[in-house]
């Protein structure tokens, strides 16, 4: 069944409101951090993007496992939608992290454990995107991508552990009693807003993928 996007205007309106509220909180409500100054504000987006990235990639693994077990088209469509949105947020994590690191660490990039882990996640899922682009129309291609979504996500803890053999310089952003209440609220609202954005993007991409698969079936029938 093709998922409906009727009546989604209201939800999209609410999402826009949530995003605007989050940005207003970031720029006008949250106090400026003492040492880092205004650049610290990008961390709200950075952390929210990290949450969205991990949740989306985990959903990608979950639906990929369901697809391998059931071979249902909807699970493949949801898996590819989650992974693609997760990939988008991984890119956002890398970019916002770099923008923050330049003034604070004095460099765009350093081979810190978390940075390297995130870059490797991005590279693994770049391979996923390539496979999907070239072989996504084949059943075997969908199976490969499902397997790569599972292997890629389960690789993450191992990557992190092995890269930690280097000495990490990543800050622990939230330590016990280490964040002011307005900052915490701003962070929570930003996380909720970006998760809502991620959910919306996953749903729309899922609808598009189901339509694409229906169109592919239709064209095959026409050829026969």
């Amino acid at each position: 069944m093709i998922p409906s996007i009727k009546g989604s205007n209201l939800l999209l309106g609410l999402l826009a409101l949530l995003l605007v509220t989050a940005m207003a909180l970031v720029f006008f409500f949250a106090p400026e951090e003492k040492t880092q100054g205004v650049v610290q504000k990008i961390l709200y987006l950075h952390l929210a993007a990290v949450a969205a990235m991990y949740i989306c990639l985990f959903l990608g693994l979950l639906f990929a496992a369901i697809f391998l077990a059931s071979k249902q088209a909807w699970s493949d469509a949801l898996s590819v939608a989650s992974v693609e949105v997760g990939y988008l947020f991984t890119t956002a994590v890398l970019l916002t992290g770099s923008i923050w690191a330049k003034p604070v660490w004095g460099t765009w990039w350093t081979w810190d454990a978390r940075l390297t882990t995130t870059l490797l996640i991005w590279l693994i899922f770049s391979a996923y995107m390539l496979l999907r682009y070239h072989f996504g129309h084949l059943h075997s291609g969908k199976v490969w991508c499902a397997i790569l979504a599972i292997l890629g996500f389960l690789d993450v803890p191992l990557i992190h552990y092995s890269v930690r053999l280097f000495r990490g310089i990543h800050p622990r952003v939230i330590t016990a009693g280490g964040i002011a209440t307005p900052m915490l609220w701003t962070l929570l609202v930003t996380i909720v807003a970006l998760l809502a954005l991620a959910a919306c993007l996953v749903y729309l991409r899922y609808a598009v993928e189901m339509l694409r698969q229906r169109l592919q079936q239709f064209m095959l029938m026409q050829e026969e």
Binding site: A127, H134, Y161, L165
Partner: peptide
Amino acid sequence: FMPLVFFPLILPLVI
């Protein structure tokens, strides 16, 4: 495709 898929997955073993 082999290096593109294999290399990032194998890196936690190579390090």
